[in-house]
Lab assay of single mutants.
Amino acid sequence: SYYEILDVPRSASADDIKKAYRRKALQWHPDKNPDNKEFAEKKFKEVAEAYEVLSDKHKREIYDR
Rank of each mutant, 00 (worst) to 15 (best):
A48K: 13
D16E: 13
N33F: 15
K57H: 13
Y63I: 03
Y63S: 02
K42G: 09
W28P: 01
R23S: 12
L26W: 12
W28C: 04
R60M: 03
N36S: 09
D64T: 02
V47F: 05
E52Y: 09
A14K: 08
R23F: 09
Y51H: 04
W28L: 06
S11D: 15
I17L: 07
Y51I: 02
D16F: 08
P30H: 06
P30V: 06
R23N: 13
D15A: 13
E38T: 10
P34G: 10
A50E: 00
R65S: 15
K18D: 15
V8R: 00
K59T: 06
S13W: 03
R60W: 02
I5T: 07
D7V: 03
E38R: 08
H58C: 13
D35G: 13
D64F: 02
E4P: 01
H29C: 09
Y51K: 01
K24T: 04
E49P: 01
R10V: 11
K43M: 12
A20C: 04
H58W: 10
V47L: 13
K42M: 11
S11M: 12
K45S: 08
K37R: 15
K32H: 14
D15C: 09
A50H: 00
K57T: 14
L54M: 03
Y3E: 01
Y3I: 00
P9L: 08
E38H: 11
A50D: 01
R60D: 03
K42C: 12
E41R: 11
S13G: 08
F39K: 08
D7R: 04
F44G: 05
I62G: 05
E46D: 09
Y51A: 04
S13L: 05
L26N: 11
K43E: 03
Y21T: 02
W28A: 03
R22Q: 14
Y51D: 01
I62A: 15
V53D: 02
D16Q: 13
K57A: 15
K43T: 06
D16R: 07
D64R: 01
D7N: 09
A48H: 12
L26A: 14
W28T: 03
K32E: 10
L54R: 00
A20F: 01
Y63L: 04
I17T: 01
I5N: 03
I5A: 07
S1R: 09
S13P: 04
V53T: 12
K32R: 14
K24D: 01
P9S: 08
D15K: 11
I62R: 10
K42L: 12
D31K: 08
P34W: 11
Y3V: 00
S11H: 14
K59E: 06
K59W: 05
E41K: 12
V47M: 05
R22F: 11
D7T: 03
D7I: 02
D64A: 02
D15T: 10
I62L: 15
F44K: 04
N33G: 03
P34H: 13
P34E: 12
D16W: 07
K59C: 08
K43W: 07
A50V: 03
D35H: 14
H29R: 12
E61Y: 10
W28H: 08
D31R: 08
Y63E: 02
P9C: 12
K43I: 11
S11A: 11
F39V: 13
D16I: 08
D56C: 05
L26K: 12
D56W: 02
A25Y: 15
A14C: 10
K18N: 14
Y2F: 09
E41A: 14
P9K: 08
D56F: 02
H58Q: 14
L6M: 07
K42S: 11
S13Q: 06
E38S: 11
E46A: 10
P30D: 05
K19Y: 06
P30M: 06
I17R: 00
R60I: 02
Y21L: 04
V8E: 01
S13D: 08
F39D: 09
D15Q: 09
E38Q: 12
E52M: 11
E52N: 11
E49R: 09
W28Q: 02
W28I: 03
Y63P: 02
V53K: 03
K37I: 11
I5M: 07
K59M: 08
F44H: 06
A14R: 06
K24V: 06
H58T: 15
A50P: 00
D7G: 15
Y51T: 02
V53Y: 04
V47D: 00
S1V: 06
K42F: 14
L6T: 00
K24G: 04
D7L: 03
Y51M: 05
K37M: 11
N36H: 09
R10Q: 12
K24S: 05
R65A: 14
I17E: 00
H58Y: 13
D31L: 13
Y2R: 02
